[in-house]
């Protein structure tokens, strides 16, 4: 009882000790959205002024993700691939899920089959136009993965998981990491440093779209793989 009380007092003191400097710092911050704030006058201004030209894509976010902060993005791609590896290592070997006794509703079945191609086209659109419009590899990849998961709801997960052989699934899931690593190494001869994109606009465009496609296909396959592994359909 006494110990618990001491613990609570200690917690309160620690929180106060943390809160006071934070609040002091908050008060010193420039008002949100203020145009004269240092964040908007130095780095951001530079990106907005010359980012599109230097980064090679009209959509500044894509330029930052794939060019200026390419190492960071490569880390993210690696993380989701590793997440699938971990889940597959734990859940992938678990024996088959019991078959769902309830057949899918004919209405749901029809609608998903009707919408599936449209979702796939939209996903590809988002991926390939990532350098011009909002969106890109990650977003499009998630849409692709969502389409595979939707299909597996009505078509029986086994059929979808076996649409591609187990070995090809692994390669598909590694696409993002492999393509990104390849482009990163190509940066050495083309731009002079790792993760660099060449200055020649056409080539840079091609590499940007290749990166987006790799991230998209890899991401989609990883997310669908996570679903299959947890739902117990993946035997690879």
């Amino acid at each position: 009882m006494n110990r618990r009380r001491a613990g609570r007092i200690l917690t309160a003191v620690l929180i106060a000790a943390l809160a006071v400097p934070l609040m002091y710092g908050m008060v010193q911050l420039p008002a949100p959205g203020h145009a004269d704030a240092p964040a908007h006058t130095n780095v951001s201004a530079g990106y907005i002024e010359r980012g599109a030209e230097l980064g090679g894509s009209e959509n500044l976010v894509t330029g930052v993700l794939l060019n200026f902060r390419a190492l960071d993005t490569f880390g993210e791609v690696l993380v989701i691939f590793t997440a699938w590896l971990a889940v597959a290592a734990v859940a992938g070997t678990a024996s088959n899920a019991e078959r769902d006794p309830v057949p899918p509703s004919p209405v749901v079945d029809y609608v998903i089959r009707l919408l599936g191609p449209f979702i796939a086209i939209f996903a590809l659109f988002v991926i390939v136009n990532g350098h011009v419009l909002p969106g890109g590899g990650f977003q499009g990849g998630v849409l692709l993965g969502a389409m595979l998961i939707l299909l597996s709801l009505v078509m029986d997960a086994e059929t979808v998981a076996r649409a591609v052989s187990a070995r090809s699934w692994i390669w598909l899931r590694a696409t993002g990491v492999l393509v990104f690593a390849m482009v990163a190494v190509m940066g050495l001869p083309l731009a002079g440093y790792l993760f660099g994109l060449p200055d020649e606009p056409g080539l840079r465009q091609v590499l940007t779209v290749a990166l987006e496609l790799g991230i998209g296909i890899g991401g989609g396959a990883v997310l669908a793989g996570l679903f299959f592994a947890i739902a117990g359909a993946d035997r690879s």
């Binding site: 209405v107 749901v108 609608v111 919408l115």
Partner: peptide, 8 residues
């Protein structure tokens, strides 16, 4: 298309 299907 999608909203009535989800409800169903």
């Amino acid at each position: 298309i999608s909203s009535p299907t989800a409800g169903h």
